[in-house]
Design a protein around this nucleic acid. Structure first.
Lengths: 77, 77
DNA sequence: TAATTTGTGTAAGGTTACATGACATAAATA
DNA sequence: TATTTATGTCATGTAACCTTACACAAATTA
């Protein structure tokens, strides 16, 4: 489905979530999200990824650490 | 809703539709689609736009002209 | 027939938005 | 005290976009 199509670039994800690109890339670094890449290496996210990113940030604000989140986040099929 | 959020760049639209960027920009020139623009001027399309673009191309293949399509296409609210 | 329009290709030259890597830091933890 | 965590910022490079222009076959109009 459309919500899982990875078609959105990081700038828009940043806009939609209110988070910085730095934060979004960091969550990937911590293995919490798995964007696709264009041939040129540009990250592509889905709407589902965006929701996950929001959830991650909420949990971090709640005091959780990325390591713990890795277990909490349902590996979005 | 999500299908109307204009978040997708022309490269992906081209990939998803199989049309060239030239064609997609031309449809805009003919007032058939109305992408948003980033601050920097980069076009942003919605999933709904993508469907419209596909429809346009189908109609053109059927022999219609862009001028006629302007009447046929429901102005996607 | 000659001129115009339509939809599309392509190329040049410029800009935006992205990439990675590095260094910095406050707060928390070991 | 030393390390880790989550984030900011900066530099440097490139992917992907922008507009404008010229070309063209096919169809239409004059």
């Amino acid at each position: 489905m459309m919500t899982k199509k990875k078609v959105i670039q990081i700038g828009i994800v940043s806009e939609l979530t209110g988070l910085t690109e730095r934060q979004i890339r960091y969550y990937e670094d911590r293995k919490l999200i798995f964007p696709d890449r264009s041939k040129g290496g540009v990250r592509k996210y889905s709407f589902e990824d965006i929701q996950t990113i929001i959830d991650i940030h909420t949990k971090l604000s709640d005091g959780f650490h990325t390591v713990e989140l890795r277990r909490m986040l349902a590996p979005s099929t």
